[in-house]
Design a protein around this nucleic acid. Structure first.
Lengths: 242, 242
DNA sequence: ATTGACACTCTCCTTACGTCATGGTTTACA
DNA sequence: TGTAAACCATGACGTAAGGAGAGTGTCAAT
């Protein structure tokens, strides 16, 4: 039977951590002295070792706690899931690195206005073509006119973000659930901030994304080469389905 | 002047977040109504946009707060540092994935006992050769004998971890600061848990790491092909320097 | 018997907010 | 003009995994 001090020295975890693990029921000592000192035995030690291994893999302690009560197979399975999670995390980090590089390289670190102007023009043109001088179009015009430059820029930045997200999905299928969810998000976003975006209009936008030079350049800058084309394909799938 | 609701809709951050940013002084509204309602203007909005960009890069809000008061150049620099950090994080994640794969593939998911037995034998032999039947050796023998299997396994696991860390440094210089720090850590670890590990003994261990089949196999399993050789080189640098 | 090292519990602190709870304000409509 | 809906405010509590420190009890040795 070892005290906290000895276990700490042996395992490398702090005494505080041992106490914490006891309190949350993750690793309770085998016994206590009369004075209340924690006493650990060999089995507890082995359990601690397993805990440390799972913790290494960044598995949340809550899950570790549950896992320890389950079979070896289940634990193996959990590790497999954790691998998937870690891979996702790695991808996200890679995306961030790419974004940071673009930011630190680009002259206009945080200026989306070129895209913004382009977008406004294009959307306006598209909306006009679809609606003519209808009431909805009038409402949009009014909203757009009353929008300050800062507001427009903010919205453009969010649009860029959506396209960047599309870029991250590009190695997958345009029909994948994730891509289709993004399409919906894009449609919602346009509907909320610009004008009610029907599937027909969305379809037209998608075609414009690849056809219009400035548009395609901006979108590909946000999500990488080929993003505009990918978005168009994803939109086509979305509209074809419904 | 916009209310929290409007800013929230425009920027995509929650109202709660806006309130939080106000409280911590990161983004205070331009004004308040008599009733205390927050009112945001265009300039505040632009500031929010910059905040969101830096936040995207996982820069801590505390740092974002400081950065916003600094020059454009300083911000660019900070982004550069952040890239380095993100790359480190990516590497760590990759290491974790490798570890998880080893764990889920290996039959003996969490059993270090082969390494443990090997290590005990080898260390014992090395220690004996260095010290003969001295007092220090007697103390070590006693400690080793009283060690239960679980205790030994835990220590072996930590040793594996150290070798895994060496493996992650393998693409660098054995004389690098990081590698040398690891050598010190290894020496400390042995001194603390086995016997006082002088440079001479450490040197001998390093040679054994590459010479002894079982040893090398175990170390390379922990840190990847060539880890044992790398550790030996790092140890040589350490001992040559002092 | 005292001292120093060690143990205990308790509480607050960390990030970046989410989630109520409670109550005041503004606006739209009847 | 009354009221209901929608909006706003502050404050408190919770999160993951402990760290730091306060205040107090216990053990071994001198």
């Amino acid at each position: 039977m070892m005290t906290v001090h000895e276990v700490s020295a042996l395992s490398g975890v702090t005494i505080r951590t041992l106490r914490y693990y006891d309190r949350v029921g993750l690793l309770c000592p085998a016994a206590r002295t009369e004075a209340g000192y924690r006493l650990y035995d060999d089995e507890t030690l082995r359990k601690l070792q397993r805990i440390l291994l799972l913790r290494e893999l960044k598995i949340p302690l809550r899950d570790v706690s549950r896992l320890l009560k389950m079979s070896e197979t289940a634990q193996r399975e959990a590790i497999g899931r954790q691998i998937t999670l870690l891979e996702l995390k790695k991808e996200r980090t890679e995306k961030l690195i790419a974004l940071a590089r673009r930011l630190s390289k680009g002259e206009e670190t945080m200026d989306f206005s070129p895209f913004d102007r382009c977008k406004e023009e294009a959307y306006t043109a598209e909306a006009k073509a679809r609606w003519g001088e209808t009431e909805a179009y009038g409402a949009y015009e009014k909203k757009a006119a009353s929008r300050t430059e800062a507001e427009g820029s903010l919205l453009a930045g969010r649009m860029m973000q959506i396209f960047a997200d599309f870029g991250a999905l590009m190695d997958g299928d345009p029909a994948s659930e994730a891509a289709q969810a993004k399409v919906k998000e894009l449609q919602d976003f346009i509907s909320t901030h610009y004008y009610p975006c029907t599937d027909a209009i969305l379809m037209g936008l998608g075609q414009m994304y690849v056809a219009d030079e400035r548009f395609r350049a901006n979108i590909d800058a946000a999500g990488g080469e080929g993003t505009a084309a990918f978005v168009q394909k994803a939109i086509a799938v979305h509209c074809g389905k419904e």
